[in-house]
Design a protein around this nucleic acid. Structure first.
Length: 933
DNA sequence: GACATCACG
DNA sequence: GACGTACGTGATGTCC
């Protein structure tokens, strides 16, 4: 490139490169490359650098530019969103593997020593427009390197465009060819035609052709709208009259702003040669071998050596010791600003919220901590209370804190920005807290879920466990800060200096874990699991939990009273039968009465040396005596009352009148969710009396509850995985699967099937899923062990695929230490090679895990797709119960919802996995859950 | 806090 | 040949 004269003016030539267009073209043109050493996605950066290099090579000689800049978009919110909130609203979210590459493209531009410009809240197009206008006024030439038609309005008077891909120059004639009008009328045509890509509405039914025709006829848009009544075609005339405001708005949206306030001038954009050291340094860091070699030859410098990393012994991420960590309190907007700047520069931040409690529906935000690099984190105290005097607790806020609204406003753009990943440990908690304060946190990463995807089955995924295992550091315990028992305090009463050390460390730990996990995720080949089955579930579950389900207190309360009375009567009867008073709720006392006092047979003692009296034992004894049956009845009522009718009432949120469960995403080993506080996945249904509890789960007036559940999903998955043709056929034919199994096993024709034979076959079918044993089946069916073993042998004989599946799965687990679902989820089986009974447990768990886990993956996929599928419908997804989804739906929308939701559920395995067996979903509806199920 | 029991899929 | 045995969860009450 030639050297530039000083002062932009006549004879100067400015090149403006549309950076975002480069990035997206690079991203889509290249396969998803990753950096060898750590798995960082790097494809788009690589393509971007190649494009820059080709640009530099192509632009030497007499027509070389004197000034050049690459212009980027920044921030997702611009003045156009204020004009029209749906502007660019239908844009697809940025692909996850592109996001971390965005900051790197800025670095790449700077490494090439090309001016790199962006302005918060402005689109690149407006900056390009402003610079083009300035250059034109100064008498220079401008080439805009882009193929974006929105920029064509700038062409003319020394400004032209260059489509670098097609190597096509576009001047006034080119614009006329594209739009049918000159550059000065392009916005008028665009205003009429609209733009589906940017979601500019325009005039319905009018495209570029018609728009150009109209503009050419009437001169310009204002004249056209003014004289719209003169248009001959009635439909077109009416459209323009009806949508005049929308058309004017559209013009505002497409009109580029030549007056963007810039903090730099044209003279800052002078062409400069790259500094070989800087450029080589960047390319080497990115590990671009070919490009490094090529450019080093051009520059005449020696190519640095990029060492091929050995994957197995990749260097651990270097991190400062926790002893040297710097944790500071941020108490003002001025102190917060540099943190925000650094976050924007990186494109990521670890976030942690401190609150007054663990229940996200009621906890108040007390403070926020942020970490951007290991060892450096801050805590923003917001709602700590001043220390009280004497016995009285103060309700005053402590001094030295940032205002809550001020802090949230300052952080909102970061927390909601598409370009910044918010990293958290269990982000569902934090996103729910922020949502209650009006901040929608996205996109996210979650270290708990990353660990779950990589290490499921090896250990739990709490912060303490992860920090100790992967950082060798024990986090500051919360206990000493909050105390325990009656004297426990909430976090808002913790002194700010202590809170800062605790809270900032949590963010620091989270960031460190993320930096370690990110490359590991790729190495463990579970990135897809994490990105398609774990992370996207977070906002879905957060919504369900926040919405909650209405529970009718009166219904529960009435039932509770009825239970009390029945229990009291039973208790008297039991004491009478026993001849003494004792605690019926104490299994060991019941055992004492039955086995010592009454000398009934079958008394077994547990590991604590006390009698054990589980239901099946009492059931057997019920034939001998009246007492065991009464105890069983009493236990059932006691369970229903204490766990359901009483406890559920305590969980009704006083603000919403609804019950808000919490789903653990990383709780169950198999990929299932777990529901806690309260557990809404074990609401009674099997017994008639228990099922009535579900009558208390109701829909709001005008709504109904709709339940959709997968029919026999685990057996279908077994049929697929173990490749059992008979089972597959039976499912395809819609047969009764247990009856079919019975017929096959016992040589009984279907039409002669008895309920008892079918019941036995059903037990065997389930037994298979659980990793059957003769003993277990015998106990379940209460038949001799030899007979049970005979059944199993027969089953294996008829369906040999099952035996192979079990043997293969055990073998795989023994060799690899984990098993997998059809979708790639890993479930580790660390005890598979243990000796003693533990390996037996592990083997059966290994057989069950791929089946249960695949079913869990499928319903996760359905849940993740559901919000988009039912968008706009008056329907909410409320609960998941492993193979069932429960919705609350406006009555008149039920007939729309059911087929849509069913379609999502039945097709949830596609396209990742094609099942040989179709999935079938049954549906029910009603005013309450008992009716819907 | 461990254990036994029982609610669900 | 004996040993212990269906899979996955969470909540509650007793007992120490």
């Amino acid at each position: 490139m030639s050297s530039a004269p000083t002062g932009f003016g006549k004879g100067c030539h400015l090149h403006l490169i549309d950076g975002s267009a480069f990035i997206f073209r690079a991203y889509h043109a290249l396969p998803p490359l990753t950096r060898k050493s750590d798995g960082l996605p790097i494809g788009a950066v690589s393509g971007f650098c190649n494009m820059l290099q080709r640009y530099v090579e192509d632009n030497t000689g007499p027509d070389a530019p004197t000034h050049v800049a690459v212009i980027f978009d920044k921030g997702s919110h611009t003045f156009r969103n204020d004009l029209y909130d749906l502007y660019k609203a239908n844009r697809e979210a940025m692909p996850e593997d592109l996001r971390p590459q965005i900051p790197l493209t800025r670095q790449a531009t700077e490494a090439f020593n090309i001016a790199c410009k962006e302005m918060e809240g402005f689109e690149a197009d407006d900056i390009i427009a402003t610079l083009a206008c300035q250059a034109r006024e100064a008498g220079g030439r401008v080439t805009i390197i882009s193929s974006d038609k929105d920029l064509m309005q700038l062409v003319g008077d020394g400004v032209e465009m260059l489509d670098a891909m097609k190597n096509l120059r576009i001047g006034v004639d080119g614009v006329r060819e594209k739009f049918g009008v000159g550059p000065e009328r392009v916005v008028d045509v665009q205003a009429l035609a609209g733009d589906s890509v940017d979601n500019v509405p325009g005039a319905p039914g009018i495209g570029i052709k018609t728009a150009a025709l109209l503009i050419n006829e009437y001169g310009d848009l204002d004249a056209l709208l003014e004289r719209a009544g003169e248009i001959k075609q009635p439909k077109r005339r009416q459209t323009l009259i009806d949508h005049a405001d929308q058309i004017r708005l559209s013009r505002q949206l497409v009109q580029l702003d030549c007056k963007t306030p810039l903090d730099f001038g044209l003279d800052d954009l002078e062409v400069k040669d790259p500094d070989p050291e800087v450029l080589m340094g960047f390319l080497t860091e990115m590990e671009f071998r070919t490009l490094t070699r090529r450019i080093s030859e051009k520059l005449g410098v020696e190519a640095p050596v990029i060492e091929a990393p050995k994957a197995a012994e990749a260097e651990p991420v270097e991190m400062p010791s926790f002893d040297d960590a710097e944790y500071v309190a941020v108490t003002s907007a001025e102190e917060l600003a540099p943190w925000i700047a650094q976050i924007r520069e990186r494109g990521w931040v670890a976030v942690d919220t401190e609150t007054t409690g663990l229940n996200e529906m009621v906890a108040e935000l007390v403070g926020i901590s942020l970490a951007v690099e290991p060892g450096r984190a801050c805590y923003i105290p917001l709602q700590h209370r001043a220390e009280g005097e004497g016995l009285f607790e103060s309700t005053e806020l402590a001094e030295g804190q940032m205002g809550l609204d001020e802090a949230l406003d300052a952080l909102r753009d970061v927390l909601e920005s598409d370009a910044i990943v918010k990293i958290g440990q269990n982000m569902k908690y934090d996103t729910k807290i922020f949502a209650r304060y009006g901040v929608q946190v996205a996109p996210i990463d979650d270290t708990m879920l990353m660990s779950y995807a990589m290490h499921g089955g090896e250990h739990n995924h709490g912060m303490d466990t992860l920090s100790e295992r992967y950082l060798g550091h024990t986090p500051i315990p919360i206990k000493p800060l909050l105390g325990s028992g009656k004297s426990a305090i909430t976090f808002d009463r913790v002194p700010i200096d202590k809170a800062t050390q605790y809270a900032a460390e949590d963010a620091d730990i989270t960031l460190r874990l993320w930096q370690i996990f990110r490359p590991e995720l790729h190495k463990a080949r579970v990135t897809t699991v994490y990105e398609t089955l774990e992370r996207p579930l977070v906002p879905v579950l957060a919504q369900m939990e926040m919405h909650g389900i209405k529970v009718d207190r009166d219904t529960l309360s009435r039932m509770s009273n009825a239970f009390s009375q029945k229990m009291a009567a039973l208790e008297d009867e039991i004491h009478e039968l026993a001849g003494e008073k004792f605690n019926v709720g104490s299994p060991s006392q019941v055992g004492g009465i039955l086995f010592d006092k009454m000398s009934l047979p079958g008394g077994k003692k547990g590991k604590t040396g006390k009698y054990s009296t589980p239901a099946d034992v009492l059931e057997d004894l019920a034939t001998e005596h009246d007492l065991p049956g009464r105890v069983l009845d009493w236990r059932q009522l006691s369970k229903l009352k204490s766990t359901y009718t009483d406890a559920l009432q305590e969980h009704i949120n006083s603000d919403t009148g609804r019950v808000h469960t919490s789903y653990a995403i990383a709780g169950a080993n198999t990929g299932r969710l777990a529901s806690t506080e309260p557990n809404l996945q074990n609401i009674p249904v099997r017994s008639e009396e228990g099922r009535r509890i579900r009558e208390a789960f109701v829909a709001e007036p005008g709504n109904v509850l709709v339940s959709l559940d997968y029919s026999q999903i685990e057996l279908r998955i077994l049929a697929h995985i173990a490749k059992i043709p008979e089972l597959k056929q039976a499912f395809d034919d819609g047969l009764d699967i247990h009856a079919m199994t019975a017929s096959e096993m016992f040589d009984v024709p279907l039409e002669e099937m008895t309920p008892d034979i079918r019941r036995q076959a059903k037990a065997i079918n389930f037994g298979v899923i659980y990793g059957i044993s003769g003993f277990g089946l015998a106990r379940n069916l209460r038949i001799p062990r030899a007979e049970a073993q005979g059944f199993i042998d027969r089953y294996f004989e008829r369906f040999p695929g099952i035996k192979d599946y079990m043997a293969d799965t055990k073998g795989f687990a023994k060799e690899h230490g984990f098993v997998q679902t059809l979708f790639g989820r890993k479930i580790h089986t660390p005890e598979i090679n243990a000796k003693g009974p533990r390996s037996g447990f592990a083997q059966r768990a290994a057989i069950n895990a791929p089946i249960q886990g695949t079913a869990a993956d499928i319903i996760r996929r359905a849940m993740i797709r559901m919000p988009a599928a039912i968008e706009g419908m008056p329907a909410k997804m409320l609960l998941q119960v492993h193979d069932e989804l429960l919705f609350e739906v406006a009555e008149d929308a039920v007939d729309d919802l059911i087929p849509r939701a069913r379609e999502v559920m039945e097709g949830a395995a596609d396209p990742a996995v094609h099942l040989d067996v179709k999935l079938v979903v049954d549906a029910g509806k009603g005013a309450n859950w008992a009716e819907a199920h």
